[in-house]
């Protein structure tokens, strides 16, 4: 049996960075295209000190959070109704079926035409992307509830409302979290896309501007910042799931 060799998990990324650094310093690759890790770190540090990076992150995060929260609330609410009440399913299903296959980024131009160049069009694009993932997973969660649990609730005297509150919602929660995780990933993708055009702030804007000015180190720095945002949202959602679903084996 192969025992897990823990130190390797730390050694391997460090080794990767060291080799990268060495390759650049030895002049094997063009530092204008692939800058050394140390110099990227340095650039990120400078961008943090002069405030450009924190400001960009704050602006993007604000858009992401708005879109994510509106989208999640709408997705969970609609999802529970669609999953539990037949008429809602019949009403909403065809709409979801028609809109879901459209890449949400393709809706952005329309939203600019309708809502202008400001925040609204960006937040709505992100919200639409989040809504569908959360909605679909919430519906799945409701439908996946073991029918014998619904029967047990009824047998114990729960009416339909109580069954909904005390069985359907907690029963769907694990799948809802799956939707939220996927939604968070989608929100980050969409915030980047909506910041390429029609804005003067945000992490996506900073990245794209750096690219157009051929400031490769800044491009790397912004990309890494996006990665860190992704990791942070995953962590936060994992923590929230642990708090809200303590019965789940992890």
């Amino acid at each position: 049996m192969w025992r897990r060799y823990r130190p390797l998990r730390i050694i391997s990324p460090i080794a990767f960075l060291l080799i990268w650094e060495a390759v650049v310093r030895l002049g094997e690759v063009n530092p204008l295209l692939v800058p050394a890790p140390a110099s990227v770190l340095r650039t990120m540090f400078d961008m943090t000190i002069d405030g450009r990076l924190p400001w960009a992150i704050a602006v993007s995060l604000h858009r992401v959070l708005q879109g994510f929260i509106y989208g999640s609330v709408l997705g969970i609410g609609l999802g529970l109704l669609v999953g539990w009440f037949r008429p809602f399913e019949d009403a909403v299903d065809p709409l979801v079926g028609a809109i879901y296959p459209i890449p949400k980024s393709a809706l952005f131009p329309l939203f600019i035409l309708w809502f202008g160049l400001g925040e609204t069009s960006k937040v709505i694009t992100i919200m639409i992307g989040v809504v569908f993932l959360v909605l679909i997973n919430t519906v799945t969660g409701v439908k996946a509830i073991d029918p014998v649990l619904l029967k047990a609730a009824r047998d114990l005297g729960a009416n339909r409302r109580q069954t909904f509150m005390k069985v359907v919602i907690p029963g769907a929660l694990p799948n809802i979290f799956t939707g939220l995780r996927l939604g968070a990933g989608m929100a980050l993708i969409l915030v980047f896309i909506t910041e390429i055009e029609a804005t003067k702030a945000g992490l996506g804007f900073l990245l794209w501007e750096s690219y157009q000015l051929l400031l490769v180190k800044q491009v790397f720095g912004c990309t890494i910042a996006f990665g860190i945002l992704g990791i942070l949202t995953t962590w936060i959602l994992q923590w929230l799931e642990k708090v809200l679903c303590p019965w789940r084996r992890v």
């Binding site: 029967k151 609730a153 009416n159 005390k166």
Partner: peptide
């Protein structure tokens, strides 16, 4: 109450502890 049921597959609510499962009926 008139009747109560015990199912073969237990049908316990996974998100409720032993105590919380037992109080479900009186709670509703």
């Amino acid at each position: 109450k008139e009747t109560g049921m015990v199912f073969q597959e237990y049908a316990l609510f996974p998100w409720r502890t032993v105590l919380e499962n037992i109080v479900f009926g009186p709670e509703v």
